[in-house]
Amino acid sequence: MLKSKINPTSIQFYKSILLTFITLLIIWFWYSGLMIHHVWDSPFNYKAADPIYYLMDTLGISKLVLYSRNSALVFDGLLMVSLLASLVFPNRIIFIRFTAILLLIYHVLLNAKMGYHAHHLFALHFALVPFWVKSKHFVPAFLLSRNLACLTYFTAGFFKLYHGAWLSMESFSAVLSNQHAAYFYFNPNTLRTIISQWIIQNPSIGMLFFGTSMLLQLIFFIGFWTKKYDKFLVIGIIVFHLMDWFLMNLGVFLSMISLVWMFLYQINQHKTTNSI
């Protein structure tokens, strides 16, 4: 059991790493005031035009969780306990299923209460899918999630290619100036400010960065067809999100690194008898 936990070819190893990653992420969000009990009374209740949000409302889940600060706190606590239980009892599939449901509710309610549909948390759902199905369904669930991950990145690159921002020399400089309008004012001497301003003053460098990020995303097209280049896709995910954090100050997107395990795990060696 212990041997399989530290064996990077074992599925248990990846499950433990993923659950630890998500647990630490939720602790970070808790510290940052991004849990439901921090925003439960926000005047926003934004559902946009998405049926999932209306479904949650119709089922009364939103009302139940957002009834008071205490009910929201109980929900956040449950999510934390459920994550820890999944870590401590990795073979009890019920805890991971419960965690997956709570994470989805957390995602939808947080978005509704901040008035904006942010999508970085999608990665957590994708990454968890293969673990909340029965072991006989692991392989197709894994392939489904892996393809969804490839689809997410590839379409991001495709739309950049299609809409043509990469053809504009000044576009990325303008995006950086807009993104850091107030950041530059409050933090004039940080490394991020110095490097961002250098890129702004050298639009060709900005264009190069943008083009590189677009290519990093486009290479995920390969992921649909072969696993041969998965190591490059892993580097692609990590480099893309580190740059996104450093240059754009979008650290929350680092949560998408949770997808990396699907490009590291050797599915070809997977045995259905492998304990999931």
């Binding site: 549909h117 942010a118 999508h119 997410t152 990145y153 379409t155 991001a156 739309f159 950049k160 299609y162 809409h163 043509g164 921002a165 053809l167 504009s168 000044e170 576009s171 400089s173 303008a174 995006v175 100036s177 807009n178 943008f210």
Partner: peptide, 11 residues
């Protein structure tokens, strides 16, 4: 969502 920043922005 991930089509964000795909449109050219101007100074």
């Amino acid at each position: 969502y991930f089509s964000l920043y795909s449109q050219a922005a101007s100074q």
